[in-house]
Amino acid sequence: MELGYGQINTRSAASQIADQLQQAIIDGRLKVDERLPTEEELAAQFGVSRPTVREALKRLAARHLIRSRRGPTGGTFVSGPSPEELATSLSTSVTLLAATGGSNLDDMAMARLELEAICCRHAAENRTQEHLDELRAELALQRDPSISDQDFCASDVRFHRIIVHAAGNAFLRFLMNAILEVLMPVSNMIIFRVRDRKEIVAYHARMITALDARDPDMAVATLAELIDYIRTQYEKAEEQNGARRS
């Protein structure tokens, strides 16, 4: 099977082959569950040695784009990454971006507000009674003064994840879960000493009221106030840290 690949330079040939095969998967020339040509056939097509092809396939396997199967019907097959693998990869990228200073809290807060606001609007329309019950259960937990900061933060993440799920959009859920699972714990870790749990709980209660009433404007406005509160607490935490360092 000839797929019309481009010419390969001798430098980083394995990487180039892996990239071209990946592009063939992306643009549909190679379908999920389709068997790839053999190493010998690929080597002939690309004009390289079999070890070079083998290294390229290892790179694709590391990206979760192919899988090998033994036996009479075996071979190497296209295997699209699972949603869980994609979410893990995206979360890792977001974590590295935040940890290396590639983005600051204002950037994170703005991105979260814009994306979660869309979720709030759709959740106001699509939420079910089950979603409301789950939100209220988290709110009851957050109102318990005996729970640890770690448990409060975990409940905080779950609360907003429920809203995202209530929006009923699989792609938004994929994007937002990575943001919530990474950015919320980062911001919570910074502000937990200066924030007031009761303030967070009050915002959450108002968001439930808005979703219950199917009022998207109230839900988005409350979310904006919540994120603005988080920004303010972040600045306060930074001031305290600066004072301690001096």
Rank of each mutant, 00 (worst) to 15 (best):
L97N: 02
R127V: 02
S91P: 05
E134M: 15
A140E: 13
S89Q: 14
D106Y: 12
D133Y: 05
S89R: 15
E125H: 12
S146A: 14
P145Q: 01
L139D: 02
D133T: 13
L139R: 06
D107M: 08
C120G: 02
M110K: 11
L141K: 12
S148A: 00
L141W: 05
L141D: 06
S93Y: 08
Q129C: 09
E125Y: 10
M110R: 11
T92G: 14
G102Q: 06
L97K: 03
L141S: 10
Q150P: 06
L97V: 07
S89K: 13
R112A: 10
D149N: 10
A98R: 09
S89V: 12
E116N: 05
A117P: 01
A87L: 15
L139C: 02
L132A: 05
L135R: 02
A123R: 00
G101L: 03
E116V: 04
S103L: 14
D107K: 03
S93C: 09
L97F: 05
I118T: 11
T100W: 08
M110C: 08
L141A: 14
L113E: 07
A109W: 03
I118R: 08
A99L: 11
R136D: 14
S93H: 10
I118H: 07
L113H: 01
Q129R: 13
T92I: 15
Q129F: 09
D149K: 07
H131D: 10
C120A: 04
A98I: 08
L97R: 03
H131R: 00
R127I: 00
R127T: 01
R127S: 07
L90Q: 08
P145L: 03
L86K: 08
V94C: 04
Q129P: 01
H122R: 13
D106E: 15
T95W: 09
N104A: 02
A137C: 05
T128H: 02
L135F: 06
T88Y: 11
L139Q: 07
N126E: 04
A87N: 13
T100S: 13
H122P: 00
Q150N: 13
T92A: 14
R136M: 12
A137M: 06
G101R: 03
S146E: 12
D107A: 10
T88Q: 15
S91K: 06
A117N: 10
S146G: 06
L115S: 12
T128F: 01
A99G: 09
T88F: 11
N126H: 10
S89T: 15
E138L: 09
S89L: 13
N104H: 00
E125T: 14
L141V: 15
A140P: 00
L90W: 05
G102P: 04
A109Q: 09
T95Y: 11
H131P: 01
N126T: 02
E138N: 11
R121G: 05
E130G: 11
C120R: 05
A98W: 10
N104G: 06
S148Q: 01
H122Y: 13
L86A: 06
D133R: 11
Q150G: 14
T128L: 06
